[in-house]
Design a protein around this nucleic acid. Structure first.
Length: 948
RNA sequence: GGGCGUAUAGCUCAGUGGUAGAGCACUUCGUUGACAUCGAAGGGGUCGGGAGUUCAACUCUCUCUACGCCCA
């Protein structure tokens, strides 16, 4: 015995994984084979494997192993993402533990420390992916900040800039005051929180009054602190209450600033008083209103610094007691918001919110209200719209071909229901802010220098390197060379250095400085499908493996990553990044909640692997992955698939004991015995189902096909039915059966391998130890090719056999006969063909069906059980006292069921509309079914009659 | 407000225009040398409500209800 009594997943998983990797089999040399390519969503270098990774990577591994087994040049690109913000946060947190700050170091020193951290502690997830059994091409593992990707990122940035698809713009961005960087729209999560709506009086200047006689306009706001940078009050142009004061001025009470009342449709007459204060520098809507009112972005007032503390506005009107306060209460300390409210209240300008309860009126400072509030997805603090210069990608232009690619079918989105989301987002896409005020990331290849004509203004130069920058500088600044007197142009790392240099005595000195910002991490991961293949070099890999065949990702990164890959891929490769895009759902907690660390309901996939084995976890993921639905975690189900692995293990042990082992042929062995021809047919059918399911990306259907074949067909029936053959006298039959059984087990092992790579590889070799060994490992074996058709005759015979044995067992249970009891059967209405069948199957009927004899002689007088299968009735005489009533009840129940079906069919066929309008094959089938059911009813009735 | 999705057996989920399926759970029985991480047999659903199309609807259409997600 080479197979242990117990299947121990842990014992084989590490061994096989190391073997595969060491022998380079994740990417076998198959230069002539058809390529098949998947790129892995690069996990964060800071990350660890969570259950979502387990799902995503299991699905990819199933596909890539399947394609590898089919002989393709299968490449699964793997690598990690530098994860700008997340990684910088990790390293800064570590520094904080040592009472250090990022700014205690130079930028170079800090980045060096991050690299050190990356080398030492980063990438834990890659080891964890190995535990899951993922067959990625680790030998060519990539990183979004490796040299090749750097080169790609620089080229993309420069090319997009030169094509006008990247530009620098001053507009409001989503600013994270905790992380002190801009973030993109997608990184903002809007959450409803309980807040307040304050109502204030804004005094009208110059003695103006409303038609109603009031000398103020009531305005309402959820953000009183922005009052310090108010630049207008807007009213709806058709709002009669305010028509007369449009163009008149407000004297803002705290700052004393004077600004106009403007007409703008943004003001909703139904909301509050209908008048709204406008802070163009700190609100996205107000920004637009401000622009429409003729305020240039550069002139918009800013009242906050990068940490959202109050700073002086350009007009110097913010009272000094506000300077330095946080925007609102932070850590229990009141901020600008609280002070604004207090001052206005003291001035009598706060309009209280009156609540009436039980006839008693109470005055509140503000109206309680639910406010949709933007939070940064990383920093977790309220996002501040902030007016800054940032780099933007013209996403709208890049989106057009990506929209077309899906519309034309060049990219197939699976499931199709996601297409609409794709179109909807792409068609309403906003400029993508790609600059980040971080140190860890791809530094933007842009330099600034003074404008020749207006030295206060800056001029932008974009180039992949200093070498390429120099000619640009020379060309531009040579215009300033007067009388052949060259100016000395120097490149600096910071603006400060450049300014110092220029302020030195020699007025001909010109300094330029590099943009300090880095690019959004997604900017580089968007290049993954071609950057990892060598682009911008025209490598062989690039030619062979682009476009990728498939991308599998969670729908949660559809916009972040998938959409951006499509945009960049088409822009730079002139072709889609992948032909198909498969989107799967989330893995949820058992109660259906989203898993999150804060809820404490995360399930650790490594814990599941420890408990049930990687194969079981993988099979669970596949079996649960139906299209368009999230997966609820269910440990019992994982356990069930562990049991499935054990079942297979034990089946293999049975084979081993019976001298059944590795087959020598790819095609099905020649077989004479119906049971062997039958199981071969079952393999053929299962293979077809499995291939179709995998082609359709129906992972659940694929997993179920192999599961049910293995357990229900192979283990429950085939192995039982061949026992008498293996132990019988017919050496030829036993030999044939060994051949077939070995072959079928091999087919199971191969078909199951994409789902359960470890146990199958182990069995692949173990089953061959006494049978000539294997020429290659299973991971690079050949996908089944039985080269035979389904044998209808054998199928019919074994199907009959199974039904007869099952019915016998059922009858025994219902008649309280011990299951082991051997019985004799007497056949009524059997023909010669049935006689032959019975003769052939007698060993199985005896051993498995416990029918010692089956004769065509009439049954002796006396009590008997009767079983109707097809055209014949099997009479089983019962020794001793039997419960006639029980047998009667049993037959009556069967008869009623049969009659009910016959009646239903009869009714349908009696409907002329059905016969005329239904499809002929439907009518035909109904007629045939009716005949069967009627015949069955007759036989059951006859059996009942015989009981007396 | 716009879009998408889901409602099928106690639970978790498949499913097809022609008489409802799986796994788990449940009931009964079982120590015949692969397997009790197992085997045999069984119970259990008016397929969310309503309307329509059709010879026929769990399946297609509309609508309502509940829940979830995304966008604004």
């Amino acid at each position: 015995m080479t197979l242990d009594k117990n299947f121990d997943p842990a014992g084989i998983e590490t061994r096989w994984y190391e073997h595969w990797e060491k022998t380079g089999q994740f990417r076998p040399e198959r230069g002539d084979a058809e390529p098949y390519t998947i790129v892995n969503p690069p996990p964060n270098v800071t990350g660890s494997l969570h259950i979502g990774h387990a799902l995503d990577n299991t699905l990819q591994d199933i596909i890539i192993r399947h394609e590898r087994l089919k002989g393709k040049d299968a490449l699964w690109v793997v690598g990690m993402d530098h994860a700008g913000i997340a990684t910088q946060m990790v390293v800064e947190r570590q520094m904080a533990e040592r009472q250090q700050k990022r700014t205690d170091f130079t930028r170079e020193e800090f980045v060096e420390k991050v690299w050190e951290w990356k080398e030492e502690s980063g990438g834990a997830i890659t080891k964890q992916l190995r535990r899951l059994g993922c067959s990625m091409d680790w030998a060519n593992e990539r990183f979004t900040m490796d040299d090749g990707m750097n080169e790609a990122v620089l080229k993309v940035f420069v090319d997009l800039y030169n094509d006008g698809l990247i530009y620098r713009d001053k507009r409001l961005v989503n600013w994270d005051p905790k992380l002190k960087t801009a973030i993109s729209d997608l990184e903002v999560e809007t959450t409803d929180i309980r807040g307040s709506f304050w109502h204030f009086k804004y005094p009208l200047a110059d003695g103006v009054t409303l038609d109603s006689g009031e000398d103020y306009i009531a305005i309402a706001t959820t953000r009183p602190e922005t009052m310090l940078a108010d630049m207008a009050v807007a009213v709806h142009p058709s709002d009669e209450r305010y028509k007369s004061v449009i163009g008149k001025e407000i004297a803002q009470p705290i700052t004393g600033r004077r600004f106009r009342i403007v007409a703008d449709e943004h003001a909703d007459p139904e909301l509050g008083s209908g008048a709204v204060k406008i802070t163009p520098g700190h609100d996205f809507n107000d920004f637009e209103v401000g622009k429409r009112a003729g305020i240039a972005p550069a002139d918009m007032l800013n009242m906050l610094d990068g940490e959202a503390n109050v700073c002086q506005t350009a007009d110097g009107l913010v009272p000094k007691e506000f300077i330095g306060l946080h925007r609102f209460r932070l850590d229990g300390v009141d901020g600008a918001r609280e002070l604004v409210i207090k001052q206005l209240k003291d001035l009598g300008l706060l309009i209280p919110h009156v609540v009436e309860k039980d006839g008693e009126k109470t005055e509140l400072d503000a109206e309680p209200r639910t406010i949709a509030t933007p939070f940064g997805d990383r920093g977790g603090v309220v996002i501040e719209p902030w007016l800054t210069d940032q780099w933007y990608v013209d996403a709208e232009t890049l989106a057009q071909p990506a929209i077309k690619a899906v519309r034309d079918g060049d990219i197939e989105i699976v499931p199709k229901s996601w297409e609409k989301t794709w179109f909807n987002w792409m068609e309403n896409i906003q400029p993508w802010c790609v600059s980040r005020q971080l140190w860890w990331g791809h530094r933007i290849p842009a330099w600034f220098g003074p404008d020749i004509d207006n030295p206060e203004e800056t001029r932008i130069f974009v180039a992949e390197s200093i070498e390429e920058l120099t000619p640009q500088l020379l060309e531009y600044y040579s215009k300033a060379w007067k009388n052949g007197e060259a100016m000395a142009v120097e490149v600096f790392d910071t603006e400060a250095e450049a300014r110092t240099y220029m302020s030195e005595t020699d007025v001909r000195k010109l300094g330029v400085w590099r943009d300090p910002d880095v690019l959004d991490t997604w900017f580089s991961s968007a290049l993954w499908p071609f950057g990892t293949l060598g682009w911008p070099e025209e490598t062989d890999d690039l030619k062979r493996h682009y476009p990728n065949d498939l991308l599998i990702s969670g729908f949660d990164i559809l916009f972040f990553w998938d959409a951006r890959m499509a945009m960049q891929g088409i822009q730079f490769m002139k072709d889609v990044p992948w032909k198909r895009l498969y989107l799967h759902g989330l893995v949820r907690a058992p109660d259906g909640q989203k898993m999150s660390k804060s809820k404490g309901n995360v399930v650790d996939p490594l814990g599941l692997i420890d408990e049930y084995g990687a194969d079981a976890l993988r099979f669970f993921m596949a079996a649960m992955e139906s299209q368009g639905r999230d997966i609820k975690m269910d440990d019992k189900r994982v356990e069930g698939y562990r049991n499935f692995a054990t079942k297979l293990w034990n089946a293999a042990r049975f084979c081993e004991v019976n001298d059944i082992g590795a087959s020598q042929t790819l095609s099905a062995p020649e077989a004479r015995l119906p049971v062997n021809r039958w199981i071969i047919s079952e393999v053929v059918e299962t293979l077809a189902t499995l291939d179709k399911a995998l082609t359709d990306l129906r992972f659940d259907a694929a997993a179920n096909a192999i599961y049910h074949f293995t357990w229900d067909r192979f283990c429950d029936w085939y192995l039982e039915l061949i026992k008498p053959v293996l132990q019988g006298d017919d050496a030829t039959a036993a030999d044939e059966t060994r051949q077939v059984a070995g072959w079928v087990l091999d087919q199971i092992i191969v078909m199951l391998h994409p789902f359960m790579p470890f146990i199958t590889e182990e069995l692949w070799h173990k089953m061959a130890e006494e049978h000539g060994g294997r020429n290659y490992d299973l991971i690079v074996a050949k996908w089944p090719a039985p080269k035979v058709d389904v044998d209808a005759e054998a199928k019919a015979e074994v199907d009959w056999l199974i039904r007869l044995i099952s019915a016998t067992r059922t009858a025994k249970v219902e008649l309280n006969i011990p299951p082991g009891t051997k019985m004799a059967a007497h056949v009524r209405d059997g023909d010669d063909a049935l006689k032959d069948r019975i003769a052939r199957q007698m060993p199985a009927l005896d051993r498995v069906g416990r029918l010692e004899t089956v004769s065509f002689e009439p049954a002796p007088e006396g009590a008997s059980a009767q079983i109707v299968i097809d055209e014949a009735t099997y009479v089983l005489p019962l020794a001793g006292a039997i419960d006639i009533d029980a047998e009667k009840a049993r037959l009556t129940k069967a008869l009623e069921a049969s009659q009910k079906e016959a009646k239903s069919l009869n009714g349908r066929l009696g409907n002329p509309n059905f016969v005329e309008k239904a499809k002929p094959e439907a009518v035909e089938k109904a007629r045939a079914d009716l005949a069967d059911k009627e015949a069955e009813s007759e036989r059951l009735q006859a059996a009942l009659d015989r009981l007396g």
